[in-house]
């Protein structure tokens, strides 16, 4: 009997935990479809007449539209360059660089941990002097620190998991190191590499501080979202909720991939 009660209690607690994890997000999604008078109620409303006005406001607002566009350009270009330069480098580090490989990896990973404010402050002045302050090019350039280092950091283990036999057999057949990489290692490691690229995408998409300091006018979506607290007199909670939803969708699309990445890295880490 006591077992049944404690099992039920545990179930209830876990259900509560799922609500705590997802509830805030679902509540925001609901808010995005509410009119302001349905939000400003003493008792929170679960039933209401849904409206698309908030999303319409967002898509009609030129600042937010530009923010979306800038985010798209900056994120895709910096992630693409990060992948093109980072993936071959990761392969070389995993397979060909025994002597100095550790030091290079230490350097690359240490960049991942650099406080953004330590990058932002000097780059403001340097960009002002060079005349590339407040340009998408400048923003892409600093984001390369994040994208290249993250791609390398996550791709090295992916290449280390590629069975050595395949590569050695290919080399015996007379394939050059580049052919081994391009025709054998890359396809085998591809699923994990895709996970690494997605993770990098999420990091850059979510970034605020560098975009805020280095591109005031040509800002990305997080900066625009952070600045719409006071459109007009009242706090436009419906619009803020809708903007939050737009900001949240791209990273959440990839949640399944992150789960897979986590599973493989935990398992290989314990071996």
């Amino acid at each position: 009997m006591g077992r049944v009660i404690s099992a039920t209690l545990a179930r209830g607690l876990l259900a509560l935990l799922i609500v705590v994890a997802l509830g805030p997000i679902l509540w925001t999604v609901l808010g995005a479809f509410k009119e302001l008078r349905d939000i400003v109620t003493p008792v929170p409303k679960l039933l209401f007449e849904p409206t698309l006005d908030n999303f319409a406001t967002i898509l009609r607002n030129p600042t937010i539209r530009d923010g979306l566009l800038h985010s798209g350009v900056v994120v895709s270009v910096s992630v693409l360059i990060g992948a093109v330069l980072g993936i071959p480098a990761a392969h070389a580090l995993a397979r060909h660089a025994q002597r100095f490989g550790d030091d290079v990896q230490f350097f690359v990973l240490s960049l991942r941990f650099m406080p953004p404010v330590a990058i932002a402050i000097p780059f403001i002045v340097i960009y002002l002097d060079l005349g590339i302050y407040d340009t998408l090019f400048g923003l892409i350039l600093v984001y390369l620190i994040t994208t290249i280092s993250t791609v390398i950091w996550l791709s090295v283990p992916a290449f280390e998991r590629v069975p050595r036999d395949i590569e050695e057999a290919a080399a015996m057949e007379g394939c050059s190191p580049f052919e081994v990489f391009w025709r054998f290692s890359l396809p085998v490691a591809a699923p994990s590499l895709f996970g690494a690229i997605v993770f990098t995408f999420v990091l850059v998409w979510n970034e605020l501080l560098l975009a805020l300091t280095l591109a005031a006018q040509n800002a990305t979506l997080p900066v625009v979202a952070a600045s719409i607290t006071s459109l007009g007199k009242e706090v436009p909670w419906g619009v803020i909720n809708a903007a939050t939803v737009v900001l949240v969708i791209p990273p959440l699309v990839f949640i399944g991939l992150l789960m897979g990445l986590l599973n493989t890295s935990v398992q290989s880490g314990r071996k």
Binding site: A21, P24, P44, N206, L208
Partner: peptide, 29 residues
């Protein structure tokens, strides 16, 4: 199911998480 639910919050942009909670913390609504 639980792992999926628990992974969602960390994927949110910090800015989005901040707004979500500011909305919930609000004294009047």
């Amino acid at each position: 199911v639980i792992c999926f639910a628990f992974l969602v919050p960390v994927l949110l942009p910090r800015v989005a998480a901040a707004f979500i909670w500011r909305f919930m913390y609000s004294p009047s609504l």
